[in-house]
Amino acid sequence: MNEIQQQRHGSIDENSDTEPVYAVETDGLVKHFGETKAVDGVDLVVPAGGIYGLLGPNGAGKTTIIHLLATLLQPDGGTARVFGHDVTEAGDDVRSRVSLTGQFVSVDEDLTGHENLVLLAKLLGYSRTGAKERSTDLLEAFGLTDAGDRQVKTYSGGMRRRLDIAASIVVTPELLFLDEPTTGLDPRNRNQVWEIIRALVDNGTTVLLTTQYLEEADQLADRIAVIDEGRIIAEGTPAELKASVGSGVLNIRVRTAEQRAEAERLLGATLDTSVERGSDPLSRSARVSNAEHAVRAFTKLSQSDVEIADFALGQPSLDEVFLELTDRPTDAESDRGVTQ
């Protein structure tokens, strides 16, 4: 896998010998829609290869960033380069390297799945027979052979999404934009899409995906930029982002109700943080900045009269990261629980 990526880098890298060429590099990118600053000075560096996640709530500016990078929009300020090619000055060079799967289905619903893929293959330069072969192959790979001759409007949500992604890789792009690829999909279809995305990356394609699901970014992305109100408010690997809010949360459950007050006091004193009540009346949780503090808190508890029925040291979720960064919960939080 790394070899393939290396080769790709080598072929892309022809116009600069010293500096590495990033899949995406933006500098102070700005886009206004009337009064609203949809993108407000974004500096983004996406390394080639792997999956990069743009995470943020609805209306944060994720889609606008992708549209700017895919040359669908012109920036109002700043610069953006895709594999070293400026999106404003070298639009054609950018377009010949990227592919976009939009937030909404971007295939022709009146046409059949097969016709859609043949259409795109022809527009990308395949011959008539070449286009048909490519379409047949892709339909088979994406489990759509039986549905190939049906109009897309009869497809289920998961099938549409798969056709959409198939349409984006008729020609393997160097950079694939996926705008909220699993929004509205059930867990089974969502997992399939995740597997597909990982398969694309194994071949060396760089994927830039937007999501409002923290779990999705955590599962897929090698690096994440957290976007809020048109700005990047945090950037790093999922682990780094989590580390920035401490190493996790200590949950305990005491044996009897009388011990709650004592447990709360001990936890608060040793961890130097506020202790929160859980949905279970017997449980208490507290944030821990590092694992050692957690051990100390346990020791105190075991030396006291408090009997611990159950405990868990949980990794912080990206929800907590977001809450920490913006002081408000994400919109997605209520839609879909985060499993850790």
Partner: peptide, 15 residues
């Protein structure tokens, strides 16, 4: 199969 399809998706010259 998808991985195979991705690997064989070389770009023909633009129409």
């Amino acid at each position: 199969h998808i991985q195979g399809a991705v690997a064989s998706g070389d770009r023909p010259s633009a129409p």
